[in-house]
């Protein structure tokens, strides 16, 4: 068993008086795919936002790739550059073309030469099949295309870990498939992924483990087959009966 790439120990987080995350313990090994599911407001998004410190936790440890995240962490940017993230609302930069969206961070954060960055970006865009849209602006693309571009943008940083925060929730049913396809092929390429999603089909297809969260706690964590075949807690059973 290799060392876990993400290690969360006894983590607690509050928004004001409200405790969103309660005593979270989680270990993710390299190349594993984890799906996090649960009702809305259960803290799933907050959990993965903590992993690249878009949210700060108050108690416990989060260790990503050997670096502990805390107020003392000096170059949080370096850790974030290793952790790609895809958002529900795509969050592409509307004033930049698709290609520039993808090359911005590699050029300015990783100091990659412009030409190399563009080649890399076109390569990544090709993998998600929107290389023909490279010179358009985000506003001219469909939701599905924008989300695929967001995936390509994150991959251009060549991250070790990819976080997905409900990547398909803001999409039309028809477009969900094209985004999921891109994610599946990424998963097959061996990327470490943590995916917050309600797409149980995707979970069954690629996930190694499924985590079920409710009210800020991890209720159940099990192998995918085990999770769907015999869920242990009643809360999980109820959730699955409603969603499947």
């Amino acid at each position: 068993m290799s060392d876990p790439i993400i290690k969360i120990q006894n983590m607690n987080k509050w928004f004001g008086d409200f405790q969103v995350l309660k005593n979270i313990n989680l270990e993710v090994e390299a190349n594993k795919k984890i799906v996090v599911c649960g009702p809305s407001g259960s803290g799933k998004s907050t959990l993965i936002r903590c992993i690249n410190r878009l949210e700060e936790h108050q108690e416990g440890d989060i260790i990503v790739d050997g670096n502990e995240l805390s107020e003392k962490t000096k170059d949080i940017e370096k850790i974030r550059a290793e952790v790609g993230m895809v958002f529900q609302q795509f969050n592409l930069f509307p004033h930049l073309s698709i290609l520039d969206n993808c090359t911005l961070a590699p050029i300015w954060v990783k100091k990659m030469p412009k030409k190399e960055a563009q080649e890399l970006a076109l390569d990544q865009l090709k993998k998600v099949q929107i290389d023909d849209q490279a010179n358009k602006f985000p506003g001219q693309l469909s939701g599905g295309q924008q989300q695929r571009c967001a995936i390509a943008r994150a991959l251009c940083m060549q991250p070790k870990i990819m976080l997905f925060d409900e990547p398909t929730s803001a999409l039309d049913p028809e477009m969900i498939k094209e985004v999921l396809d891109a994610m599946v092929s990424l998963a097959k390429g061996g990327m470490t992924m943590i995916v917050v999603t309600h797409e149980m089909g995707f979970a069954k297809e690629v996930a190694d483990e499924v985590i079920f969260m409710d009210e800020g706690m991890i209720i159940e964590k099990a192998d995918t087959k085990e999770f769907f075949a015999n869920p242990k807690s009643d809360r999980t059973k109820l959730f699955l009966s409603q969603i499947l």
Binding site: N52, L54, E77, R80, N91, F93, W108, V109, K110, R153
Partner: peptide, 23 residues
């Protein structure tokens, strides 16, 4: 500006100045 723009820039590893200047 929506908060997502800040989140996206940060998640790509940009620091305060890079985030503000480019995004």
């Amino acid at each position: 500006l929506p908060r997502g723009q800040y989140d996206a820039a940060k998640s790509l590893g940009m620091g305060y100045w890079k985030m503000h200047i480019f995004v």
